[in-house]
Simulated assay, not measured.
Amino acid sequence: MTETHATNPPGAPVFPPGRYGRRREPGRRRPLVPVVLAVLLLAALGLGAVRLYTQYGDPAYDAQVITYTDITDSQVVIDFRVTVPAGGSAVCLLRARSSDSAEVGHEEVTVTARPGERQVTARHRLATSERPFIGEVLRCRAPA
């Protein structure tokens, strides 16, 4: 003899009692614990990444071109300012381009700040293969 529940819709299978364990009530399950654990894990990973970046990440090496002067057929003089860590140094890549935007010269220059200072103002004469139109600082980085 099978047991029939009043909550079973007509045509639904009826299982013998005790044979398959307790049946769950139909309804929406909310996975609250896994979601909270995932959010906590992401927050911990983000906090760890920020802490490691502030501890070991590269400091900002910001460069600005002040002027480019003395333009001839074979050179340009570039005056630039670099922000470095206090008393530190930087290696900057300078580039000269012609009026048609072709690169006509480039060179890496090392600049060093005085002890306790964060900015370095430098002047460099960049040799070119033809007449330059502009002199620029592409990037600065920590010395190797």
Rank of each mutant, 00 (worst) to 15 (best):
125 R>Q: 08
36 V>E: 01
86 A>H: 07
91 V>M: 03
75 Q>K: 13
100 D>T: 11
62 D>Y: 06
109 V>I: 14
119 Q>E: 13
55 Q>F: 08
82 V>D: 00
29 R>T: 10
70 D>N: 12
49 A>T: 15
66 I>P: 01
113 A>M: 15
80 F>G: 01
91 V>K: 07
59 P>F: 11
123 R>L: 02
130 E>S: 15
128 T>M: 03
66 I>N: 02
87 G>A: 07
33 V>F: 13
32 L>C: 11
108 E>F: 14
76 V>W: 01
30 R>C: 07
36 V>G: 00
108 E>L: 10
97 R>E: 12
123 R>N: 04
120 V>D: 04
40 L>V: 06
87 G>R: 05
71 I>D: 00
106 H>R: 14
129 S>C: 08
49 A>I: 11
100 D>R: 05
79 D>E: 12
89 S>Y: 12
90 A>Y: 08
89 S>N: 05
122 A>W: 15
67 T>N: 06
102 A>H: 14
50 V>W: 15
117 E>C: 10
52 L>S: 15
85 P>W: 06
79 D>H: 13
69 T>P: 00
29 R>S: 07
29 R>D: 05
112 T>M: 06
112 T>K: 12
48 G>T: 14
76 V>T: 09
79 D>L: 08
64 Q>C: 01
39 V>M: 01
97 R>G: 04
33 V>D: 00
100 D>Y: 08
97 R>H: 10
51 R>G: 03
116 G>Y: 14
57 G>Q: 07
77 V>F: 02
53 Y>C: 06
76 V>F: 04
85 P>I: 05
57 G>N: 04
87 G>M: 08
94 L>M: 04
112 T>G: 03
93 L>P: 04
71 I>P: 03
70 D>W: 04
51 R>V: 12
87 G>P: 07
122 A>T: 15
50 V>P: 03
80 F>C: 02
68 Y>E: 02
65 V>K: 00
